[in-house]
Design a protein around this nucleic acid. Structure first.
Length: 502
RNA sequence: GACUGCGUAGCUCAGCCGGUAGAGCAUCGGACUUUUAAUCCGCAGGUCGUGGGUUCGAUCCCCACCGCAGUCACCA
């Protein structure tokens, strides 16, 4: 036997090589029988679930004359292939092969099959004495001969590392994993449909940017050879999307796409993650609140059939309107600290520290408020809640609160101690915006490498006029975790970031 | 980045106080045949994550490194 280059796989062990040899021998037998084990096309007439639906009333021990053609992966192979469990995207159906009903030559093919192989089966439908819906095979077509065995048919694949590195095996073996990622798709569709139903148009903005703005985060750096310049992977699409509102491309735009933040990995953080951001002209944060609720209601309904979702012990209800409370008010209510009555920064830091927040001594007034909220209150929020009117210090793109210039028209929505949305009445005043950038630059110079860089062109865009606009961002991965009851972000991202194996 | 835990056959897992490894499933050979994790008999399958060290002897003890997980830090 001659080894082809494709089969030189240094990662496999000798034991794996032996297992492969066995299957290669069967592949050779198939070739000898004139069978192409990797054909080009196959047409089916039914899926497994369709058969179960159609024949749900078929009596036990009953043979029909209905011809069907199915295709899928062999998940179980009993009695030397007499019984096969065939799995397709909808589920499993049993295949029965008997000398008397099998077409000539099929028995030889059957003998060359293994668990894991992809096959097509033509036959008639019956229900066995034991009540199992079954296709009595007449012909069997090899659609792809496998060269490596699947994991344990009963215990499956549970090794977390293997599940992430070889996601295809995880998907073959674990129905829960398949369901989660199908739910992910359904949620994304619901988000898009909700927005499109309201007249938002989907756009795409640069992922490689010269000035990475729109969020407080460390960026990844990459390099463009021809231009010989470094570029940053975007941390947010925000500033580009608002340029589109300035341009009047649409009064309503949204983007669903990847953001990249150079930070640690955790059950809640993956360096690349999916974000939905949308901007709507002529509305403010109130309008965004209603939209936030509508999106979550739709997304939850898409995967759970209603506005409730189970997350751990918590029964979450996404039906709007959600509770809303000002950040300073809930801080005052829970800790007794009335930050609005504190004007001195040192005093604010002392109060925050006394309350139990982690204070380094460099915080601005607004950062003290946020620390207390983030450290002490955020983790306790269970049901969807809008926390509103963030301090101006931590909100460089939000309009000031007309009632108190220390605050802004901004809110973040929280659920089970997690942020699920961030929105505000967008700052549209170019002079105020430039002042905010200058403030950020000062924070940057004093060591905060996550403070915003000045994006002069963005300010120029504002000088051409951004209408009153509401903006909203939703972290899609975390939303999916909540709506599907998933504890770790790696279980909702198909190929999470992992260190390479050396 | 820090701490803790884990890494044993293709998969899922045992392995005592240090004496160079076991099971089930899968594979292979055989038996059986309307099964449901099919059953029965038998064979084979291992650089115990990697590299050092201690020891007469290391899967086990020590050190370093690699990877994964959890917690924290960083971070929305």
């Amino acid at each position: 036997m001659t080894a082809t280059p494709a089969l030189i796989t240094p990662e496999t062990t000798e034991a794996q090589d032996r297992l492969r040899e066995v299957r290669l021998a069967k592949l050779e037998k198939l070739k000898a029988l004139g069978v192409n084990a990797y054909p080009y096309k196959f047409t089916t007439t039914a899926k497994a679930q369709q058969l179960h639906d159609t024949y749900k009333d078929l009596a036990v021990d009953t043979q029909t004359t209905d011809d069907v053609v199915v295709a899928g992966r062999i998940r179980a192979y009993r009695n030397d292939g007499m019984f096969i469990d065939l799995q397709d995207v909808t589920g499993k159906v049993q295949i029965f092969s008997h000398k008397e009903t099998l077409a000539p030559g099929m028995a030889d093919i059957l003998a060359c099959l293994d668990i894991g192989d992809l096959i097509g089966v033509a036959g008639t439908v019956r229900r066995t004495k034991r009540g199992e819906l079954t296709v009595n095979a007449t012909t069997i077509t090899v659609l792809a001969k496998t060269l490596l065995p699947l994991p344990d048919k009963f215990h499956g694949l549970s090794d977390t590392e293997a599940r992430y590195r070889q996601r295809y095996l995880d998907l073959i073996m674990n129905e829960e994993s398949r369901n989660t990622f199908r739910a992910r798709s359904a949620i994304l569709r619901a988000v898009r449909e909700t927005l499109q139903g309201r007249g938002f148009i989907e756009v795409e903005t640069p992922m490689m940017q010269v000035i990475p703005g729109g969020a407080a985060a460390k960026p990844f750096i990459t390099h463009h050879n021809a231009l010989d310049i470094d570029l940053y992977m975007r941390i947010a699409p925000e500033l580009y999307l608002k340029r589109l509102i300035v341009g009047g491309l649409s009064e309503r735009v949204f983007e669903v796409g990847r953001n990249f933040r150079n930070e640690g990995l955790s059950p809640k953080h993956n360096p690349e993650f999916t974000m939905m951001e949308c901007y709507q002209a002529y509305t403010d944060m109130e309008g965004m609140m209603e939209l936030t609720e509508a999106i979550f209601e739709a997304a939850c309904t898409a995967v759970n059939g209603g506005v409730e979702a189970q997350f751990g012990e918590h029964r979450l209800n996404f039906k709007g309107p959600w509770a809303r409370v000002r950040m300073v008010d809930i801080v005052k209510e829970r800790t007794g600290i009335d930050f609005l009555a504190i004007s001195d920064v040192k005093e604010a830091r002392a109060a925050a520290k006394k309350a139990g927040a982690e204070i380094t001594g460099k915080e601005l007034w607004g950062q003290c408020v946020e620390k207390v909220f983030g450290d002490l209150i955020e983790p306790t929020i269970v049901q969807p809640t809008h926390i509103t009117h963030h301090p101006r210090d931590i909100s460089p793109f939000a309009k000031a609160d007309p009632k108190d210039s220390r605050l802004t028209e901004r809110y973040e929505s929280f659920c089970v101690g997690r942020e699920i949305a961030n929105a505000f009445s967008e700052l549209t005043d170019p002079q105020d915006q430039m002042a905010r950038f200058v403030d950020q630059m000062k924070q940057r110079e004093s060591g905060d490498d996550e403070a915003q860089m000045i994006d002069a062109d963005y300010v120029t865009a504002l000088e051409y006029g951004l209408p009153p606009t509401g903006g909203l961002g939703i972290g899609i991965d975390r939303a999916i975790m909540l709506l599907t009851g998933t504890e770790t972000i790696r279980d909702v991202i198909l190929f999470p970031t992992l260190k390479p194996v050396k």
